[in-house]
Design a protein around this nucleic acid. Structure first.
Lengths: 339, 339
DNA sequence: CTGTTAGCGCGTTCAG
DNA sequence: CTGAACGCGCTAACAG
């Protein structure tokens, strides 16, 4: 556990000279540098970034708070963040809230205590307090994936409303009129925006929104399973399902299988968020795919621009498009049904 | 950015009194405590753990170096680590090497600079230097998932040799004699142990090991795909494939599909590592499942025990069993084939 | 090109 | 029960 002083002593220089060698700051004579580097190697010296950060007031660390790292969508976002941060010489502390505001609050404090230079936040709810708290510590924050109404902050997200609108239009074009919406939680903007897009498409097509076909649950397989079970009990039964995220879609597929129903022959299914190619043998689901990696990357780049003062002063809202990927699960045009 | 001094001033006490309130150390009068807490709330004071750690020489942070966070197996391990660490009040810095020794070295330095209290390492290779480096910084390390021959260190891993042995026995019992091994990289103990188990099962059954059926590649879909293509060109063609991890298995399934071959009717397939239930609609693969979460948890608990001095002095090697999960992909007993 | 001085924010030590 | 002094390891600011 050699310190900078040990190195300085061994190299016969002052500590600050060692500091200059380590950080490539200021001028150092080539021979002096060589002596210092030899001393560093001899002692196995590793700088203590705690001390460095305490002095310089920069930790070179970003905090990433997200809701479910076991979901490949978030894993991909995290890689985008990690890559962009790494390119700029920053590290990332990853925090997983499981959609819990309590966990989120805990991690927020941890990150502030650790003096991270900036925070990327996927908010567990639409509350403004978390963002205000971070800003009160003079720490820049970029909100990721979700909107927080009435908040003053940078946001990078996808156009959930439009993605849902397009997916619903696709189902309408195939002849579906009774489309069940298996949504995520109320109070989470992505869930609500997808319901909005779904409603808009229906209304434009002159199809009344049947509220008994709109289910609110969690972004999980279990929730997708039970919402599907409920949807199947509604009469007349829906001819298509809209899963608000990938886990809900998988839960829906299981529930349909267990109910002896085939997709797309008996029911059509569309969803949000594609699964990574590496995890699927036969891509089957028709989805609105979000550019997860790109979202993570752009959010990080915006945050880093804030840190370096390069970003324009006004808060930005960057909205990335979704891409509709049509596969088998949405099926063919429905035959005209009796009635 | 209030400091402990600001709080002290506002509460009319000395900084050390504030410190005692924050850390619940030493006696503080109830009224004094209340005044201090009020001041903390008023100022939105958050302690600076950099300064604290610099003084106390403990960061409450563990480093986790693994090879591929986009693989659900590792995501699950990471959650086990995270949960165990969190229970003990520790944070985790996650580092992704993509099996690159260079990246691994980079992260090793970063973690040492950050003064993490301990490291969980999934080594990218069998080299002993990384472990020695960590130990040279007086930092405890637990090696995870893989062996490092000739190293003195704690290890928590699964019994890959035995899992592969059992999977191969299963195929042999079903009548397969030509089983292609689609392995991970040479020099990675899990890959090599699985080859060993495979060989042992064959030898015990009196089946000569055909080295043209043993392929070494990467733990990736692409590699699984190309190894499968190669395996299919061998004559006589293998009747079964053994995929050394989950991504290789998915690559194999794709290659077989693209070659117009059905599983298990035309070829049987078994693999290592189950996919999380949430990601699969119809579990189909026969696998040797490793207790990923438990591995992460136990490794972390061992590391924490080292930190607290509770662990026995001798290095430990904890080997967890794999579980054979039989599903459709391994098929039924082969009919006797001509010849 | 190199060194001196001072202090980042906190907690340990020792006195009261 | 409370406080003063000191130092953790490093670097900004200012000499020289």
């Amino acid at each position: 556990m050699a310190t900078i002083r040990d190195v300085a002593k061994r190299a016969g220089v002052a500590p600050i000279t060692v500091s200059r060698v380590i950080n490539n700051s200021g001028y150092v004579n080539e021979q002096t540098r060589a002596r210092v580097e030899a001393a560093i190697a001899d002692l196995g010296y590793v700088p203590n970034v705690l001390a460095r950060s305490l002095r310089s007031r920069r930790t070179g660390t970003l905090g990433l708070i997200l809701t479910d790292i076991s979901n490949p969508f978030w894993t991909t976002v995290a890689r985008g963040v990690e890559d962009a941060a790494s390119d700029a010489g920053f590290n990332v502390i990853l925090c997983n809230t499981d959609e819990s505001e309590i966990e989120q609050d805990k991690y927020l404090h941890v990150l502030m205590q650790k003096q991270v230079d900036g925070v990327l936040l996927v908010p567990a709810s639409s509350a403004v307090e978390p963002v205000k708290f971070i800003q009160s510590q003079n720490t820049p924050v970029v909100v990721l994936d979700r909107r927080i109404p009435n908040s003053q902050t940078d946001v990078v997200r996808c156009d959930s409303e439009d993605g849902a609108y397009q997916l619903t239009r696709l189902l309408l074009a195939l002849g579906h009129r009774r489309i069940a919406m298996l949504s995520g939680p109320r109070g989470v903007s992505t869930a609500e925006d997808r319901v909005s897009g779904y409603r808009r498409a229906l209304q434009e097509a002159g199809v009344a929104v049947d509220t008994t076909l709109v289910f609110y649950g969690k972004f999980s397989l279990e929730s997708g399973y039970s919402m599907t079970q409920q949807a199947l009990t509604v009469t007349p039964r829906p001819s298509a399902l809209f899963a608000s995220n990938n886990f809900i879609a998988i839960g829906a597929l299981r529930a349909l299988r267990d109910a002896g129903l085939r997709v797309p022959e008996d029911l059509a299914l569309v969803g949000f968020d594609d699964l990574p190619a590496a995890l699927v043998v036969d891509p089957f689901l028709t989805v609105a795919a979000q550019p997860a990696y790109e979202m993570g990357r752009q959010a990080t780049e915006l945050l880093l621009a804030r840190l370096s003062g390069e970003a324009p002063p006004a808060y930005q809202e960057i909205i990335l498009p979704t891409e509709i990927v049509t596969r088998q699960s949405s099926g063919q045009i429905l035959e005209q049904q009796g009635g």
